[in-house]
Design a protein around this nucleic acid. Structure first.
Lengths: 300, 300
DNA sequence: ATATGCGCTGTGTTTTATGCATCGCTATTC
DNA sequence: GAATAGCGATGCATAAAACACAGCGCATAT
């Protein structure tokens, strides 16, 4: 959109930090870019940049304006998406911030299912921990977030909450396989493979361990859920994960069992969006699909 | 703002109903205007107008776009207002849709009080009945609405609700002056001066009368609350109004008394804004002042 | 002291937007 | 049923806006 050009240029200057660098990025000369900024500031009524000896930085007025620009552009894409929808075309793009546990089974299945009906829709899937996911929503980098036990919950509008007990993951020939119910102390005496501190699973486990006056001392700590699943096949260790990231059918080498709720409270996998935001049509439809899929899981 | 020019032109075409008429209004030639519309439609991706033999009309896509334009412009003025505020200037404009009862005392006093502190702020006061007031909010023609017993209450976010019993208004030498508590049947036998059907006072009275198997047959029915107040000085009749529109101190010729709650339920004077809308700074501050003023009235 | 990078401005050039005249179309009017 | 009036669209010349280039003054970094 041409009439948004000025906004894009302003953003380019914000990113680059100086007019001259931004001019290179935008294939303009510094003078032309400079004039557009000055022209806009005059129309707007106030300067939006601080002029520093080393470049430009947004002043408070500029910060407010940037907020408006993002909201504005987002609303326009929503309108375009709605128009596309009423024109019979179901096109669009959906960007999701989700936690690792969704990657192996849930998200691929859901995207494939949606695209089977709406091939014109494309997806961006960003792996984010629970804190980053909220930032992604707030900055409009993602339309939807699907995270386990998010942190702040400001600006996060919950569309669905799926209870998820923490499961222990171990090799099928482990002694744990013979149990029917798993208690925390069954695991703590064994070799632990744990996700990093930032993750919800770890947070719930730390809380539970502290309550029992115990500490968690993993032999492997990792940010990769995939590593956790695979490591336990190599050594008789115990990993931990939420069931949505684990295959329902027993998979040869790997087995898993839920840990009793008496020891670790059931966590919540939350589907959410930016509070108060009107999602584009495609994202809204997809979120409805996700809600019904999650509801089905909850009923099982 | 220059970059909003295209939007203004689109609105001009919508208003005028044809490019040629809109071209006159905007001091452009029809060809230039035509090209801008076409250019925008191409950028936007879809036509936003239906081409009829007699002119142009918005199509559904255009309706959606207009909604976006209004929201967009409104948000920009909010940002500008916020910037003005953080620049130390308290400038701005506040538009209020309110019912007639507020005109004689409440609104003038409140505006004067606010302007005493913020002389840079100007006001528009539109007299609207309870249905129109909501439309004004929804179309951004007004920032705030102050109405008695509104009708729909969709998109209407209540900021404060002030209970208001209906008062009978009569000349001081009327027989009613000797009463301490007034019942509905004291009034119905007398000559009635009533507001028109659209008004909340009338609506409450009609409901009360119907419940008592009675009908209201006014000798004068009017849209003007001022007329009601003045007419009762000319003839020994009874008018009806809410107390916020009546002077607290007895005013020579006119007296008023509340009608018992047993007969007519207490109505609500509601201060509200468009649901979910972020008001400009000046309007937000003024609404806070109104809330505290109304709260003070409620405590009495 | 020198060099570098910055925002800003004067001047000529290129791109864009506008004005004018005109076409083809459709519904109304006589 | 022909004439007419009003409409949106389009080709072309022109006016206006945006742009590139070169260079200035200034503050920091080397």
């Amino acid at each position: 959109m041409k009439y948004l050009k000025t906004f894009e240029l302003i953003e380019a200057v914000v990113r680059a930090g100086s007019i001259r660098k931004a001019a290179e990025d935008t294939n303009l000369t510094a003078s032309a870019l400079n004039r557009r900024i000055q022209g806009f500031e005059q129309e707007f009524g106030w300067p939006i940049f601080e002029r520093l000896p080393r470049g430009m930085r947004l002043n408070p007025a500029g910060e407010l304006l940037m907020q408006h620009i993002k909201l504005q552009r987002n609303d326009l894409t929503r309108v375009q998406s709605q128009v596309a929808d009423l024109s019979g075309q179901r096109r669009g793009h959906i960007s999701i911030a989700c936690s690792q546990a969704l990657l192996p089974y849930f998200i691929p299945e859901q995207i494939a299912f949606y695209r089977a009906e709406h091939p014109g829709v494309s997806f961006t899937v960003n792996v984010r921990d629970r804190a980053q996911a909220e930032q992604d929503l707030a900055s409009f980098r993602s339309d939807l977030a699907l995270v386990f036990e998010p942190v702040h919950l400001v600006d996060f509008e919950v569309l669905f909450a799926l209870p998820q007990p923490i499961h222990a993951v171990f090799r099928s020939d482990s002694a744990l396989s013979r149990k029917t119910e798993l208690r925390l102390h069954d695991c703590l005496s064994r070799k632990l493979v744990l996700p990093a501190q930032a993750y919800g699973v770890r947070h719930l486990m730390e809380t539970a361990a502290t309550r029992k006056r115990q500490t968690l001392t993993p032999i492997v700590e990792t940010e990769s859920f995939e590593l956790i699943r695979h490591y336990v096949t190599r050594e008789d260790a115990v990993g931990f994960q939420i069931p949505i990231g684990l295959s329902t059918r027993e998979q040869g080498a790997i087995a898993h069992l839920p840990i009793s709720e008496k020891d670790i409270p059931v966590g919540r996998l939350l589907l959410g969006q930016m509070k108060g935001r009107a999602l584009p049509v495609a994202s809204a439809k997809f979120s409805q699909q996700l809600v019904s899929a999650l509801a089905q899981l909850a009923d099982q």
